[in-house]
Design a binder for these strands. Structure first.
Lengths: 148, 148
DNA sequence: GGCAATATGTTTCGCGGTGCAACCTCATTA
DNA sequence: TAATGAGGTTGCACCGCGAAACATATTGCC
């Protein structure tokens, strides 16, 4: 299970160097074969390729005539790209995805259990600030009665 | 059950020396394996690793498309890092978490039963002052009829 | 066929992290 | 009351890894 946020910079060739602590488990789980795609919140999703397949299958089972469904399909499946870690644990981020998420040099890689999110650093900061404003965190109703 | 507030200072390498009184129970409970993460109130949470896992599982069961849920996931799981006590009872606080909670040298470690909170000393003082201003503590409605 | 742009591999230097060791403080006992 | 010992804390130094720059290869296009 991936967790933890890492501040990273894309290199001149727009490659992402995966933090060392995650490289071994990624090699084990998917031999360095990953899928990079778009998320509605304007960040990118990074899945181990085997973990991605069932998600894509689920998406494509939806009706492509329904407006919400097709929008989701175009986003998640339409932007999805296969990427591989090279010998130095780096992977190439395509111009299309870079532009979608507004990535330039400074990015934030955020572990989310089964996968990662990849954010433009400023976008990451502002969604964080937005969520935390007024110091009172909104609790999802599913967590009624739950406490840390 | 952890309780009690301790004023501490991070060392030059930004390590936190756990108070001696808590070291033994932490060794017993989790062999020095802990999880450090972010809290909406801009402090850090320190959980024994086994106690943390079910919380993370609960978080990741929420929808990642919902704004509130994903914000919570990004905060609690996205920032979570595994840390271990070294032979001298110290643990490393990563730059990302330090920045999040605005920690510099002086910090406050606060026992909260199952876990600890870690505060920047000034932030600790001001949240305390804010809660106590006008000398009238606001009582949660769940505590209707309850009194010390 | 050559050039340019993109992709891949390699090496080195810097610094972050870890572990050791010394010193200081406190407590206990004579 | 003073001395000795144990435990804790802080400073220090070394080691190893990780990041970035550099060098090389490959492909596609003119």
């Amino acid at each position: 299970m991936f967790r933890g946020a890492t501040s990273l910079s894309l290199d001149a060739k727009s490659r992402l160097a995966v933090p060392t602590k995650h490289r071994e488990s990624l090699q084990l789980e998917c031999a360095g074969n990953l899928v990079l795609t778009a998320h509605p919140h304007r960040c990118l999703l990074l899945y181990p390729q085997p973990a991605w397949e069932p998600i894509q299958a689920k998406m494509m089972a939806l009706s492509s005539f329904d407006k919400q469904s097709s929008a989701l399909q175009r986003l998640l499946v339409g932007f999805a790209e296969d990427v591989t870690m090279d010998s130095a644990g780096r992977m190439l981020v395509s111009p299309v995805l870079r532009e979608f998420a507004g990535l330039d040099k400074e990015v934030m890689l955020v572990g989310q259990g089964s996968h990662f999110e990849l954010w433009n650093m400023d976008a990451w900061r502002s969604q964080l600030a937005e969520a935390m404003q007024d110091g009172n965190f909104a609790m999802p109703t599913e967590l009624e009665g739950f406490s840390l």
